[in-house]
Design a protein around this nucleic acid. Structure first.
Lengths: 153, 153
DNA sequence: CAAAATTCAATTGCGCACAATTTAATTGCG
DNA sequence: CGCAATTAAATTGTGCGCAATTGAATTTTG
Protein backbone atom coordinates (compact mmCIF):
# COMPACT_ATOMS: atom_id res chain seq x y z
CA UNK A 1 0.00 0.00 0.00
CA UNK A 2 2.20 2.85 -1.16
CA UNK A 3 0.54 5.97 0.17
CA UNK A 4 -0.53 8.13 -2.74
CA UNK A 5 1.49 11.33 -2.69
CA UNK A 6 -0.51 14.47 -1.93
CA UNK A 7 -0.87 16.32 -5.25
CA UNK A 8 -1.20 19.59 -3.31
CA UNK A 9 1.91 19.21 -1.20
CA UNK A 10 3.78 22.52 -1.13
CA UNK A 11 7.27 21.07 -1.05
CA UNK A 12 6.72 18.85 -4.05
CA UNK A 13 5.66 21.75 -6.22
CA UNK A 14 8.04 23.19 -8.76
CA UNK A 15 6.16 26.48 -8.73
CA UNK A 16 6.93 26.98 -5.05
CA UNK A 17 10.59 26.08 -5.51
CA UNK A 18 10.80 28.80 -8.16
CA UNK A 19 8.84 31.26 -6.01
CA UNK A 20 11.01 30.67 -2.93
CA UNK A 21 14.29 30.75 -4.87
CA UNK A 22 13.20 34.07 -6.37
CA UNK A 23 12.68 35.58 -2.94
CA UNK A 24 15.99 34.16 -1.77
CA UNK A 25 17.71 35.92 -4.67
CA UNK A 26 15.99 39.17 -3.76
CA UNK A 27 17.14 38.84 -0.16
CA UNK A 28 20.67 38.03 -1.29
CA UNK A 29 20.81 40.98 -3.66
CA UNK A 30 19.24 43.48 -1.27
CA UNK A 31 22.31 44.52 0.75
CA UNK A 32 24.54 44.43 -2.34
CA UNK A 33 22.17 46.59 -4.36
CA UNK A 34 21.55 48.96 -1.47
CA UNK A 35 25.22 49.80 -1.86
CA UNK A 36 24.58 51.13 -5.37
CA UNK A 37 21.10 52.48 -4.63
CA UNK A 38 19.04 50.18 -6.84
CA UNK A 39 16.22 47.74 -6.20
CA UNK A 40 16.44 44.33 -7.82
CA UNK A 41 13.99 45.12 -10.66
CA UNK A 42 15.82 48.40 -11.26
CA UNK A 43 19.09 46.48 -11.43
CA UNK A 44 17.59 44.24 -14.11
CA UNK A 45 16.50 47.32 -16.04
CA UNK A 46 20.04 48.68 -15.92
CA UNK A 47 21.44 45.37 -17.15
CA UNK A 48 19.33 45.95 -20.27
CA UNK A 49 20.16 49.66 -20.53
CA UNK A 50 23.90 49.17 -20.22
CA UNK A 51 23.63 46.89 -23.24
CA UNK A 52 20.99 48.82 -25.17
CA UNK A 53 21.00 52.51 -24.30
CA UNK A 54 18.15 54.39 -25.97
CA UNK A 55 15.84 51.37 -25.94
CA UNK A 56 12.11 52.06 -25.99
CA UNK A 57 9.92 51.54 -22.92
CA UNK A 58 8.12 48.80 -24.82
CA UNK A 59 11.29 46.90 -25.75
CA UNK A 60 12.60 47.24 -22.21
CA UNK A 61 9.39 45.72 -20.92
CA UNK A 62 9.55 42.89 -23.45
CA UNK A 63 13.09 42.09 -22.41
CA UNK A 64 12.12 41.86 -18.73
CA UNK A 65 8.66 40.36 -19.31
CA UNK A 66 7.02 43.39 -17.69
CA UNK A 67 4.28 45.69 -18.96
CA UNK A 68 3.97 49.48 -19.10
CA UNK A 69 2.15 49.54 -15.76
CA UNK A 70 5.37 48.38 -14.14
CA UNK A 71 8.00 49.94 -16.41
CA UNK A 72 6.58 53.45 -16.71
CA UNK A 73 6.62 54.34 -13.01
CA UNK A 74 9.97 52.60 -12.46
CA UNK A 75 11.61 54.55 -15.28
CA UNK A 76 10.07 57.77 -13.96
CA UNK A 77 11.56 57.16 -10.52
CA UNK A 78 14.97 56.55 -12.07
CA UNK A 79 14.64 59.70 -14.15
CA UNK A 80 13.74 61.69 -11.02
CA UNK A 81 17.01 60.52 -9.52
CA UNK A 82 19.00 61.64 -12.54
CA UNK A 83 20.10 58.16 -13.62
CA UNK A 84 18.39 58.35 -17.01
CA UNK A 85 16.25 60.52 -19.26
CA UNK A 86 13.02 59.76 -21.10
CA UNK A 87 12.57 61.20 -24.55
CA UNK A 88 9.89 60.84 -27.21
CA UNK A 89 11.06 59.30 -30.44
CA UNK A 90 11.01 61.92 -33.20
CA UNK A 91 9.97 59.54 -35.94
CA UNK A 92 7.23 57.85 -33.93
CA UNK A 93 5.70 60.03 -31.27
CA UNK A 94 4.08 57.05 -29.55
CA UNK A 95 7.48 55.73 -28.52
CA UNK A 96 9.40 56.90 -25.48
CA UNK A 97 13.10 56.08 -25.45
CA UNK A 98 15.25 55.76 -22.35
CA UNK A 99 18.75 57.26 -22.36
CA UNK A 100 21.28 56.80 -19.58
CA UNK A 101 22.92 59.83 -18.01
CA UNK A 102 26.62 59.81 -17.17
CA UNK A 103 25.64 58.91 -13.63
CA UNK A 104 23.52 56.02 -14.86
CA UNK A 105 26.36 54.69 -17.01
CA UNK A 106 28.68 55.10 -14.04
CA UNK A 107 26.72 52.64 -11.94
CA UNK A 108 27.90 49.82 -14.16
CA UNK A 109 31.37 49.77 -12.65
CA UNK A 110 29.99 49.27 -9.16
CA UNK A 111 27.54 46.64 -10.39
CA UNK A 112 30.32 44.40 -11.63
CA UNK A 113 31.01 43.23 -8.09
CA UNK A 114 27.54 41.79 -7.63
CA UNK A 115 27.63 38.73 -9.90
CA UNK A 116 31.00 37.86 -8.43
CA UNK A 117 29.39 37.56 -5.02
CA UNK A 118 26.66 35.36 -6.45
CA UNK A 119 29.34 33.17 -7.95
CA UNK A 120 31.07 32.98 -4.59
CA UNK A 121 27.89 31.93 -2.81
CA UNK A 122 27.32 29.19 -5.38
CA UNK A 123 30.96 28.33 -5.86
CA UNK A 124 30.65 24.58 -5.45
CA UNK A 125 27.69 24.39 -7.78
CA UNK A 126 29.16 25.94 -10.89
CA UNK A 127 28.29 22.87 -12.89
CA UNK A 128 24.66 22.83 -11.76
CA UNK A 129 24.12 26.51 -12.45
CA UNK A 130 24.18 26.08 -16.21
CA UNK A 131 21.80 23.13 -16.00
CA UNK A 132 19.47 25.08 -13.74
CA UNK A 133 19.43 28.13 -15.93
CA UNK A 134 18.74 26.07 -19.03
CA UNK A 135 15.99 24.17 -17.24
CA UNK A 136 14.38 27.38 -16.02
CA UNK A 137 14.55 28.90 -19.47
CA UNK A 138 12.81 25.87 -20.97
CA UNK A 139 10.30 25.96 -18.12
CA UNK A 140 9.43 29.57 -18.88
CA UNK A 141 8.97 28.83 -22.56
CA UNK A 142 6.69 25.87 -21.88
CA UNK A 143 4.59 27.84 -19.40
CA UNK A 144 4.30 30.84 -21.67
CA UNK A 145 3.35 28.63 -24.61
CA UNK A 146 0.67 26.98 -22.51
CA UNK A 147 -0.46 30.37 -21.20
CA UNK A 148 -1.15 31.89 -24.61
CA UNK A 149 -3.45 29.26 -26.09
CA UNK A 150 -1.68 26.13 -27.28
CA UNK A 151 0.79 27.22 -29.95
CA UNK A 152 0.09 23.99 -31.82
CA UNK A 153 -2.93 25.86 -33.16
CA UNK B 1 41.22 35.52 -28.60
CA UNK B 2 38.04 34.20 -27.03
CA UNK B 3 35.95 37.29 -26.27
CA UNK B 4 35.49 37.57 -22.54
CA UNK B 5 31.84 36.98 -21.70
CA UNK B 6 30.00 40.00 -20.33
CA UNK B 7 29.59 39.35 -16.59
CA UNK B 8 26.49 41.56 -16.60
CA UNK B 9 24.68 39.86 -19.46
CA UNK B 10 21.03 39.43 -18.52
CA UNK B 11 20.51 36.11 -20.26
CA UNK B 12 23.47 34.47 -18.63
CA UNK B 13 22.22 35.26 -15.15
CA UNK B 14 20.62 32.59 -13.05
CA UNK B 15 18.78 35.20 -11.00
CA UNK B 16 16.95 36.42 -14.09
CA UNK B 17 16.06 32.91 -15.18
CA UNK B 18 14.48 32.36 -11.76
CA UNK B 19 12.76 35.77 -11.86
CA UNK B 20 11.33 35.21 -15.34
CA UNK B 21 10.23 31.63 -14.63
CA UNK B 22 8.46 32.88 -11.51
CA UNK B 23 6.47 35.40 -13.54
CA UNK B 24 5.70 32.76 -16.14
CA UNK B 25 4.26 30.56 -13.39
CA UNK B 26 2.14 33.44 -12.13
CA UNK B 27 0.81 34.06 -15.64
CA UNK B 28 0.11 30.36 -16.09
CA UNK B 29 -1.72 30.07 -12.78
CA UNK B 30 -3.72 33.29 -13.18
CA UNK B 31 -6.65 32.01 -15.28
CA UNK B 32 -6.75 28.71 -13.38
CA UNK B 33 -6.81 30.43 -10.00
CA UNK B 34 -9.31 33.04 -11.15
CA UNK B 35 -11.67 30.09 -11.49
CA UNK B 36 -11.43 29.42 -7.75
CA UNK B 37 -11.08 33.07 -6.74
CA UNK B 38 -7.55 33.03 -5.36
CA UNK B 39 -4.36 34.87 -6.21
CA UNK B 40 -1.19 32.85 -6.49
CA UNK B 41 0.17 33.80 -3.04
CA UNK B 42 -3.25 33.08 -1.55
CA UNK B 43 -3.20 29.68 -3.24
CA UNK B 44 0.17 28.95 -1.60
CA UNK B 45 -1.29 29.93 1.77
CA UNK B 46 -4.16 27.51 1.27
CA UNK B 47 -1.76 24.72 0.37
CA UNK B 48 -0.31 25.21 3.84
CA UNK B 49 -3.68 25.60 5.57
CA UNK B 50 -5.19 22.50 3.98
CA UNK B 51 -2.30 20.59 5.53
CA UNK B 52 -2.07 22.49 8.82
CA UNK B 53 -5.36 24.06 9.79
CA UNK B 54 -5.05 26.25 12.88
CA UNK B 55 -1.44 27.20 12.13
CA UNK B 56 -0.18 30.50 13.56
CA UNK B 57 0.43 33.55 11.39
CA UNK B 58 4.11 33.26 12.23
CA UNK B 59 4.39 29.61 11.21
CA UNK B 60 2.45 30.26 8.02
CA UNK B 61 4.89 33.03 7.17
CA UNK B 62 7.89 30.82 7.92
CA UNK B 63 6.50 28.13 5.65
CA UNK B 64 6.11 30.56 2.74
CA UNK B 65 9.21 32.67 3.54
CA UNK B 66 7.02 35.74 4.07
CA UNK B 67 6.80 38.13 7.02
CA UNK B 68 3.87 39.56 8.95
CA UNK B 69 3.75 42.62 6.73
CA UNK B 70 2.68 40.35 3.90
CA UNK B 71 0.77 37.63 5.74
CA UNK B 72 -1.36 39.78 8.05
CA UNK B 73 -3.17 41.76 5.33
CA UNK B 74 -3.52 38.69 3.11
CA UNK B 75 -5.11 36.66 5.90
CA UNK B 76 -7.41 39.57 6.72
CA UNK B 77 -8.61 39.74 3.13
CA UNK B 78 -9.32 36.01 3.15
CA UNK B 79 -11.16 36.34 6.44
CA UNK B 80 -13.27 39.17 5.02
CA UNK B 81 -14.31 36.79 2.25
CA UNK B 82 -15.32 34.11 4.74
CA UNK B 83 -12.68 31.58 3.72
CA UNK B 84 -11.02 31.47 7.14
CA UNK B 85 -11.12 32.89 10.66
CA UNK B 86 -8.40 34.48 12.77
CA UNK B 87 -8.37 33.74 16.50
CA UNK B 88 -5.98 34.61 19.31
CA UNK B 89 -4.34 31.62 20.96
CA UNK B 90 -5.68 31.24 24.53
CA UNK B 91 -2.41 30.04 26.01
CA UNK B 92 -0.25 32.68 24.32
CA UNK B 93 -2.07 35.89 23.56
CA UNK B 94 0.66 37.06 21.21
CA UNK B 95 -0.21 34.31 18.75
CA UNK B 96 -3.01 34.52 16.19
CA UNK B 97 -4.14 31.21 14.69
CA UNK B 98 -5.81 30.77 11.34
CA UNK B 99 -8.75 28.36 11.01
CA UNK B 100 -10.40 27.40 7.74
CA UNK B 101 -14.15 27.76 7.36
CA UNK B 102 -16.17 25.08 5.59
CA UNK B 103 -15.97 27.24 2.48
CA UNK B 104 -12.21 27.49 2.79
CA UNK B 105 -11.87 23.73 3.14
CA UNK B 106 -14.19 23.30 0.18
CA UNK B 107 -11.81 25.12 -2.15
CA UNK B 108 -9.41 22.21 -1.95
CA UNK B 109 -11.49 20.02 -4.24
CA UNK B 110 -11.41 22.62 -7.00
CA UNK B 111 -7.70 23.22 -6.48
CA UNK B 112 -6.83 19.63 -7.28
CA UNK B 113 -7.24 20.31 -10.98
CA UNK B 114 -4.49 22.95 -11.04
CA UNK B 115 -1.35 20.84 -10.57
CA UNK B 116 -2.68 18.45 -13.19
CA UNK B 117 -2.63 21.26 -15.72
CA UNK B 118 0.91 22.17 -14.75
CA UNK B 119 1.86 18.54 -15.28
CA UNK B 120 0.21 18.61 -18.68
CA UNK B 121 2.10 21.73 -19.73
CA UNK B 122 5.39 20.13 -18.69
CA UNK B 123 4.48 16.61 -19.74
CA UNK B 124 7.59 15.85 -21.72
CA UNK B 125 9.85 17.16 -19.02
CA UNK B 126 8.76 15.00 -16.10
CA UNK B 127 12.32 13.81 -15.57
CA UNK B 128 13.76 17.33 -15.52
CA UNK B 129 11.19 18.63 -13.09
CA UNK B 130 12.60 16.71 -10.14
CA UNK B 131 16.13 17.83 -11.00
CA UNK B 132 14.99 21.42 -11.33
CA UNK B 133 13.12 21.42 -8.06
CA UNK B 134 16.06 19.90 -6.22
CA UNK B 135 18.44 22.39 -7.80
CA UNK B 136 16.21 25.32 -6.87
CA UNK B 137 15.87 24.06 -3.32
CA UNK B 138 19.64 23.86 -2.96
CA UNK B 139 19.96 27.27 -4.58
CA UNK B 140 17.60 28.78 -2.03
CA UNK B 141 19.52 27.23 0.86
CA UNK B 142 22.87 28.48 -0.43
CA UNK B 143 21.54 31.99 -1.00
CA UNK B 144 19.86 32.15 2.40
CA UNK B 145 22.99 30.86 4.09
CA UNK B 146 25.03 33.52 2.35
CA UNK B 147 22.40 36.16 3.16
CA UNK B 148 22.45 35.63 6.90
CA UNK B 149 26.16 36.05 7.56
CA UNK B 150 28.22 33.03 6.67
CA UNK B 151 26.86 30.09 8.71
CA UNK B 152 30.39 28.77 9.02
CA UNK B 153 30.72 31.33 11.80
C1' DC C 1 10.22 38.59 41.85
C1' DA C 2 11.21 42.67 38.72
C1' DA C 3 13.60 44.63 34.87
C1' DA C 4 15.46 43.58 30.38
C1' DA C 5 15.23 41.09 26.31
C1' DT C 6 12.58 38.53 23.11
C1' DT C 7 8.58 37.24 20.44
C1' DC C 8 4.36 37.92 17.76
C1' DA C 9 1.18 40.53 15.18
C1' DA C 10 -0.07 44.65 13.25
C1' DT C 11 0.91 48.99 10.90
C1' DT C 12 3.16 52.44 7.75
C1' DG C 13 5.56 53.57 3.74
C1' DC C 14 7.54 52.45 -0.62
C1' DG C 15 8.15 49.83 -4.74
C1' DC C 16 6.93 46.21 -7.80
C1' DA C 17 3.36 43.59 -10.83
C1' DC C 18 -0.61 43.17 -13.57
C1' DA C 19 -5.53 43.89 -15.35
C1' DA C 20 -8.22 47.22 -17.40
C1' DT C 21 -8.86 51.56 -19.29
C1' DT C 22 -7.59 55.92 -21.62
C1' DT C 23 -5.27 58.91 -24.89
C1' DA C 24 -2.49 59.77 -28.69
C1' DA C 25 0.00 58.39 -32.78
C1' DT C 26 0.55 55.39 -36.58
C1' DT C 27 -0.68 51.87 -39.91
C1' DG C 28 -3.80 49.51 -42.94
C1' DC C 29 -7.60 49.15 -45.89
C1' DG C 30 -11.27 50.44 -48.84
C1' DC D 1 -7.64 60.39 -48.88
C1' DG D 2 -10.36 58.90 -44.64
C1' DC D 3 -11.81 55.84 -41.35
C1' DA D 4 -10.92 51.53 -38.66
C1' DA D 5 -7.68 48.82 -36.38
C1' DT D 6 -3.44 48.67 -34.12
C1' DT D 7 0.29 50.19 -31.25
C1' DA D 8 2.72 52.68 -27.35
C1' DA D 9 2.53 54.96 -22.89
C1' DA D 10 0.38 56.33 -19.19
C1' DT D 11 -3.06 55.83 -15.54
C1' DT D 12 -6.07 53.60 -11.98
C1' DG D 13 -6.98 50.11 -8.76
C1' DT D 14 -5.78 45.92 -6.22
C1' DG D 15 -2.62 42.88 -4.14
C1' DC D 16 1.87 41.30 -2.94
C1' DG D 17 6.56 41.94 -0.45
C1' DC D 18 9.73 43.87 2.72
C1' DA D 19 11.99 47.35 5.99
C1' DA D 20 11.10 49.66 10.02
C1' DT D 21 8.36 50.65 13.85
C1' DT D 22 4.88 49.94 17.51
C1' DG D 23 2.48 47.66 21.24
C1' DA D 24 1.36 43.92 23.84
C1' DA D 25 2.47 39.35 25.82
C1' DT D 26 5.92 36.20 27.27
C1' DT D 27 10.48 34.58 28.56
C1' DT D 28 14.90 35.30 30.40
C1' DT D 29 17.97 36.86 33.81
C1' DG D 30 19.95 39.22 37.46
Amino acid sequence: MARSPDPLNLDSMLCFAVYAAGHAFTRFYKPRLDAIGLTYPQYLAFLVLWEADGISVKALGDRLFLDSGTITPMVKRLEARGLLQRQRDEDDERVVRVYLTAEGRGLRAKALAVPLEVGAALSDEAATVDTLRAGLHRLRVLLDDASSGTPSA
